[in-house]
Amino acid sequence: MTFTKLSVSALAIAAVSATAAAARDEIRVVGSSTVFPYSQAAAEQFGNVSDFPAPIVESTGTGGGMQIFCGGIGEAHADITGASRAMKTSEYELCAGNGVTDITEVQIGSDGLSIAVSRDSAFEWDLTKTQVYLALAAEVPVDGAMVANPYMKWSDIDASLPDADILAYGPPPTSGTRDAFVELAIVEGCMEIPMIEAMGGDWAEDNCARLRSDGPFIEAGENDNLIVQRLQSDANAVGIFGYSFLFENSDTLKAVDIEGVTPSFDTIESGEYGISRPLFFYVKNAHRGVIPGLQEFVEEYTSEESMGPGGYLAERGMVPLGDSKRTEEREEAANAVNMPAK
């Protein structure tokens, strides 16, 4: 029977390739979907200029990446994870519990989060963080008490804003972009309200951080392109995503200014633009010298050509670090300086 022959030969091929693939010879990078395009760029560049195979980069989200990265030491576990926030204490403990104690934390640059609207929108949008909070949070203070968000139109919040329904597309809770947005815009905006400020920072984090689920805020999944498409079809809807997406789509979308500052590479780097966050990658130092090319890849990733101003990461939308910070991060990365225990 021909199918017997076919399966036997296929099994033989599989067996031969199994012996060839006994050891992992390429670097594995997991982690944040925000850092993914930068890791991609560094990986492709590394594959082209070095004699090592290009690293394999997978977008798992910051939290998912930490789970895989902290799984243990050895070929089955990833070498590098990207993160759009610093590693949490619980994640460090997970790592330490699995024997992953020697980790270098490298900040590659920062990412500006942008709130964007379609270019068809006639209004010149300029919001304060407090207005963003009042529009999107689940509970807001009204007459001294926290109540379910009553605002349905922008003009309900401030008369100077357009008389249009609040409609915002944003990332789901699994996304690092969402974490950063809640932390940098919502909670900070909440803290600027005198009544909340009096309650203290911890109280604010517990009570302001929930986004509303009664319609005006819509979770649009991890696919930022989908948000872009929806904004194009509704001039008054706003979308929340990384600045690089706004930059790539600047012909159809325009930025919402935050406290009078338009997001741009300059305003994000200087910190003038309020909603920006650092981007990191974490290297498992026990894998250096074991996984071929890991040391060289880390050096490529942190090289001036890559993370410097005008480098290929900046071309993709990352906002580079200042000169002295960059040199410091580069040296720490190359010398495998372990991050302090958390």
């Binding site: 599989a14 390739s17 199994a18 060839a20 492709e44 290009a54 394999i56 997978e58 977008s59």
Partner: peptide, 12 residues
């Protein structure tokens, strides 16, 4: 769904 710049040479 990883980013891989070369074609695989076997099922592993």
């Amino acid at each position: 769904n990883a980013f891989i710049t070369s074609a695989p040479s076997g099922p592993f």
